[in-house]
């Protein structure tokens, strides 16, 4: 069964297509500006398999970039939760850096790393990294006093246990934030590809823009929406499974 997110996206996509056709009709626009449904179908038939490969390529980069951002944000947030100078420095740096638009830094990345995989990966990771980091720091820096008290009192508290307690107690928040940032990873990858890369669906979008081919753009947008929804749905399922595993008892006589 297809996830609910796919249905939601398809409905929105069809509504947008309907809206475009209505605009075309009202303002008497030509097929060149807004393609007819038949043109759209023809273009889809022609480019679908190529765009599918491009979208899968983009999704793969987005997933790897997202994973990189999660790992990095976790490590930095674990250090950032500290109440010493290192924690304070990381917090201040994170709050200041996240205010800077990553897209503005993208040219530097392309100049230094070229238009290959590394640049796409880095931009994708950076775009979803800061929102993740800020949420993770907030979660890991907030003590769960009622649980931590015993371990602190008895001298058993270790940083690993502290992180485990805080992550477990905030698992719903962590899962929501992680799933939410998946969209940003996808956006980051497409932006990077659109900006200067030589592969991916963002790159195909750039070519379609240069050709002023709205039909190609719409096909590309359809695939982007489908893959983003699929990735979100997958993350949400993992989240539900994780919460189920974490909260349900292992057994018992109650």
């Amino acid at each position: 069964m297809l996830p609910k997110r796919i249905y939601q996206f398809v409905i929105i996509y069809l509504a947008a297509l309907g809206g475009l056709q209505a605009i075309k009709l009202v303002f008497a626009l030509s097929d060149y500006v807004i393609p007819s449904p038949a043109d759209l179908w023809q273009t889809a038939e022609a480019v679908f398999s190529r765009y599918l490969g491009d979208a899968l390529n983009t999704l793969a980069v987005a997933i790897v970039g997202h994973l990189l951002a999660i790992v990095l944000a976790t490590v930095v947030a674990i250090i950032g939760r500290l109440t010493n100078w290192a924690g304070a420095l990381i917090k201040v740096a994170a709050y200041n850096l996240q205010a800077y638009p990553i897209v503005a830094v993208a040219p530097i990345i392309f100049i230094l790393l070229g238009d290959g995989l590394a640049s796409r990966l880095l931009i994708a990771a950076m775009i979803c990294y800061f929102p993740l980091l800020l949420s993770f720091i907030g979660i890991f820096a907030e003590p769960v006093v009622d649980i931590e008290h015993f371990y602190t009192m008895t001298g058993r508290m270790r940083w690993q246990l502290e992180v485990k307690i805080r992550a477990f107690e905030n698992n719903a928040k962590l899962i929501t934030v992680t799933a939410g940032s998946a969209t940003l990873a996808m956006v980051g990858t497409i932006v990077a590809e659109f900006f200067g890369a030589n592969a991916g669906i963002g790159y195909s979008l750039r070519i379609a823009l240069y050709q002023s081919d709205l039909a190609k753009v719409l096909v590309a947008l359809f695939l982007i929406g489908i893959f983003t929804s699929l990735y979100l749905a997958l993350l949400e399922r993992i989240g539900v499974w994780l919460q189920h595993k974490l909260v349900l008892p292992t057994g018992g006589t109650l």
Binding site: D146, H149, T154, L246, P249, T250, G252
Partner: peptide, 21 residues
């Protein structure tokens, strides 16, 4: 110092937590 609002972590059963400490 123990107080009545304390909680044991939820990732394993009560018996395991007590045995572990």
């Amino acid at each position: 110092y123990s107080y009545n609002l304390e909680r044991l972590p939820g990732w394993s059963c009560v018996g395991d937590h007590i045995a572990k400490v």
